[in-house]
Design a protein around this nucleic acid. Structure first.
Lengths: 210, 210
DNA sequence: CCTGATTTTAATCATTTGATTAAAAATCTT
DNA sequence: AAGATTTTTAATCAAATGATTAAAATCAGG
């Protein structure tokens, strides 16, 4: 039976190699379009080892999916729930950190969104964190600002959708944007870096309008 | 051989029934997760008829995909290229019509985005329209406004990404938003209707900031 | 180095799935 | 209505794919 306390060097640890390969392939092609043979090839291992270490394609997939979402939520959660930063500062931090993360791993959101869809949203049940988003310090500060008359649109959901939309959408549609805008990969990355500063400014302008 | 000039009533036209079923199933599950048997079942036809009328799953899929994108581009294209409306009016119209369209067919964008991804963007080659987006009246008016000093951010790509992001993102992430925001389907639709008025206001506020 | 446990491999299964075929049924033409 | 054409059906194929198995190779402890 496979355990995680192997004594081999990390880069030759088979279990780890498979997990990393699975992450790459699943992120790129999604669950249905991925064949276990694709993962085996990416990991340079015998196909049977995939089942030896992870039982099934489904199990391996669920592991990768939960790992992917958890990493993301963890990063954002620390920003959202910091009691010592202002709302404006949180917006800056979210835009900056999130865009950095997406530059490093641009396929993440479309992967998650696609699978949540085909999954009928059932995966979200396994993520209790989702339920506490609206109780975060971030949202409390927003509501306070609304009460103070500093913000025009009362519903914080619009606010969250706006930030996420401005940050995530370009990455999810990068092929279209590159094609329509005649933009190279490097230029696209440059545009995204610009948005790290622009999104907070835009969000502030939106908060006063509405 | 199948022709399109059948004399049967439309709702019993087999070719049409298959196309509509294929649209439903492909939109919901994507290419890879869709089995031709799913489509046959949805259309209530014998499996072999799918190949009889459309040759292959790939051919049928490409038809649905191009049809889906073309319908969308056509609707947006008429708004974008109307010489007789102001930039502000175009923004209002795009938000309103696009959101209406997405309320009616919320799976459309995630379907297109997923497949463009797994396709490596090759489908975009078959859509020459994509290349002319940046030559639309919409973009010309934007550049003019920048020249007049009415708009702070010079690059119209940011502008397009912002509108699309604000409009499309909520639909693409509706399962997450409904779960995290504890929002029912009806409430979600109501939120989207609110955004028809809000998005143009926000965009105007953003244009002045920057 | 021997022995038992663990890991890896090659071969093979069983099922799923896209597609085809030949015959039957329905429709059209004259 | 007869004969030809088109459409539909049931059965089946072949390839792809997730998974298993039994044997071989490797490793760890004594």
């Amino acid at each position: 039976m496979a355990t995680s306390k192997s004594k081999q060097p990390v880069d030759t640890n088979t279990e780890e190699k498979i997990r990393k390969a699975a992450r790459v392939v699943f992120h790129k092609k999604g669950f249905a379009a991925t064949r276990t043979r694709d993962i085996a090839e990416e990991a340079n291992i015998n196909l049977a080892l995939l089942n030896y270490y992870f039982r099934s394609k489904e199990k391996l997939f669920e592991l990768i999916m939960l790992e992917t979402i958890a990493t993301f939520l963890q990063n954002m959660g620390t920003i959202f729930n910091d009691e010592n930063t202002t709302l404006a500062k949180k917006i800056e931090l979210v835009a900056e950190k999130y865009i950095d993360q997406l530059i490093a791993e641009p396929e993440m959101p479309i992967f998650v969104m696609s699978e949540v869809r085909s999954n009928g949203g059932k995966i979200l049940e396994k993520l209790p964190v989702v339920n506490s988003v609206m109780q975060s310090a971030f949202i409390k500060q927003y509501k306070q600002a609304v009460a103070n008359g500093e913000i025009a649109v009362a519903n914080p959901l619009h606010f969250v959708m706006n930030i996420m939309g401005l940050v995530v959408f370009p990455f999810v549609n990068s092929p279209l944007i590159k094609k329509a805008g005649k933009v190279s990969d490097a230029q696209f990355t440059q545009l995204m870096k610009e948005r790290k500063k622009l999104v907070p400014v835009w969000i502030q302008a939106m908060l006063k309008a509405g």
